[in-house]
Design a protein around this nucleic acid. Structure first.
Lengths: 338, 338
DNA sequence: CCCTGGCACTCATCAGGTCCGAGTGCCAGA
DNA sequence: TCTGGCACTCGGACCTGATGAGTGCCAGGG
């Protein structure tokens, strides 16, 4: 096991490297930190830390930089979560309180997080799996063309065009609208399929085709609606990444454009508590030189979605974790109020 | 005035520079283009073009590169719009045909445009102001609570809660719904206020308050919810920008995150025909080394929104313009169909 | 009058070489 | 176990000269 002082040396290395972005040597370390020992001793400790794989040298006779494993140890054992200052907290609250609807909440959150952490922020929309149907509306657009409008209890509206196999009269339409609503209103999305299963049978032969079509579109919409969406922001912060730009930044930008990748990324985070994935711990190829700090948020105890930031492995973990946690907490409050 | 050959030289310079990204010299020009004159002659022409401000030298004894003014001349006088190949057209159509709703159409468009042009794509959602009303739906949520749903011809849906001053019966509701729709369906938003002005008078005394309330909410929705949205994609293409990365790319990323900036950018584009803004012609600070190619699109002759791409001034204008125009055309078709 | 070939000149880029110093590993002594 | 000293390594900064693409200018020819 590593001695107390060696851990201290590791902590100092991480802190200095995060600050300066340059490999840190033994002499500089003893000057900037009160370790109470000489550079030579630190060198020995460094050699030990390197043997264990916590730090590495970019080239012979340069200083050391932390490895992914080193950051991992730092995050797990050495770093706390740095709470925000109270002006910061107030700023967060003020900024989020101004939001008028869900889109606005998410939008503001993403900007806020990007600003606070100076990194790329990712915020997932609250999941709709627990949503219920408020109303289903059917409108006749043309003899064999309907529009289906679905309204959820969270206030979201989705609409779809339906091409019917046969013309569909106004009375049949009103009939279908009424029966459909009486069955599904107030019900959870997941229950709807069973509830409407036998609906076509109760219609005249000639209308059954259309009813089935409408139902299948409805079910499709429900599934899609629960699909998770997210918003990202602060991509300009990627320019602070490092010196060897193009090669580092490109795959990251590409990964960020793939919503699927991001959703998986957030999905991999623990449901409760904060998750930090460092460098190669990220499954995705393009993100092996980034770290992801993610946390769930929700109106109650239960997380309804996740948010987080993506940044270089060389990031200020305590500060970032503090900001992420604080923002998640406030967003949760806002959601609970509305 | 510039002679025919000098224009030809400018065209050759632009083409070569766009291809190679390197300053082009007189000798190389005569080799790669059949100008029928010697390098020395070309040098004289170049000197003239430089005097006029169409080209410039990065440093003495390097080749020439086009200036913004040079690109402007190229685009206005020398370059056509390169039509897409028919496989490309087919691919566009196939890809866009798969869209299920408005969000999907816009999302697919943005990805398509980014891929085709290998640049950053920006697509504005069809604006509500220029749209017409397809349907207004009223739903009773509680005795004195209604939901108003507005459906536009572009497939966009907005909904609002309405708190009524008095309970409102189902028959009155159906009545209002019918009369409202008969007046406004197919009409432009801007015409709606006049069309519904006298509607409350035709109702029973006790319902007039509610009708007025509903109408005012409707008008509010029409006016206030004109808020224009847009989607961007292909930011990874920014990495192809140039060699002097960080400084170039950062302000662009920042500008792209400001929806306001982008909306203004598209807003400045002409309503009909294609608009090309080159380098410093862009008002925004961060975009002075980019060019914007934008065009309106819509279901009919009239543009309901705009789309375009943002790329380095050194871009393939004919190809980009061709792709932008083609995509706009197909999106217009898709919107007209739905 | 315009085009052409020739010529002197400029200057960015590259390869090769030298120097410097931060940083290391190791070792003997406290 | 810590410390100071010492030899060693090696990347980066700096200088240098050679190279060559490209220019401007000019005198001569169609």
């Amino acid at each position: 096991m590593l001695s107390e002082r060696r851990l201290e040396v590791l902590r100092a290395i991480v802190q200095d490297y995060v600050g300066t972005e340059e490999p840190v040597g033994s002499k500089a370390l003893t000057q900037r930190h009160k370790l109470g020992v000489s550079p030579a001793t630190v060198r020995n400790d460094m050699a030990a830390l390197e043997d264990e794989g916590f730090i590495a040298q970019p080239h012979t006779s340069a200083g050391r930089i932390p490895t992914d494993k080193g950051y991992r140890l730092f995050v797990d054992k050495l770093a706390g979560v740095k709470p925000l200052s109270s002006p910061e907290r107030r700023a967060i609250q003020n900024f989020l309180d101004g939001a008028v609807d869900l889109d606005d909440v998410v939008g503001r959150t993403v900007r806020l997080l990007a600003q606070l952490t100076r990194q790329v922020a990712v915020v997932q929309y609250p999941s709709l799996t627990r949503s219920t149907v408020r109303h289903v509306e059917l409108l006749s657009m043309a003899p064999a063309r309907l529009m289906l409008v679905l309204i959820t209890d969270t206030g979201r509206v989705e609409q779809r065009m339906v091409d019917c196999p046969a013309p569909f009269g106004e009375t049949s339409l009103a009939d279908l609208r009424a029966r459909l609503n009486s069955r599904v209103v107030g019900r959870r999305f997941t229950d709807v399929p069973q509830l409407v299963q036998d609906l076509p049978e109760s219609f005249e032969q000639e209308d059954r085709g259309t009813v089935s079509t409408v139902l299948s579109v409805l079910l499709e919409t429900l599934v899609e609606e629960t699909e998770e969406r997210l918003m990202i922001g602060g991509t300009a912060n990627l320019t602070r990444f490092g010196h060897d730009f193009p090669l580092t930044i490109r795959p990251v930008l590409e990964a960020l454009e793939e919503q699927v990748v991001l959703l998986k990324l957030l999905g991999e985070a623990k449901d409760s508590g904060m998750t930090v994935r460092i460098g190669h711990e990220n499954a995705h190829e393009g993100l092996t030189s980034t770290s992801v700090v993610a946390v769930g948020y929700g109106s109650g105890d239960e997380a309804v979605a996740k948010l987080g930031v993506v940044g270089p492995t060389r990031m200020d973990y305590p500060g970032t974790m503090g900001a992420v946690r604080a923002v998640a907490r406030y967003v949760g409050q806002i959601l609970a109020e509305s």
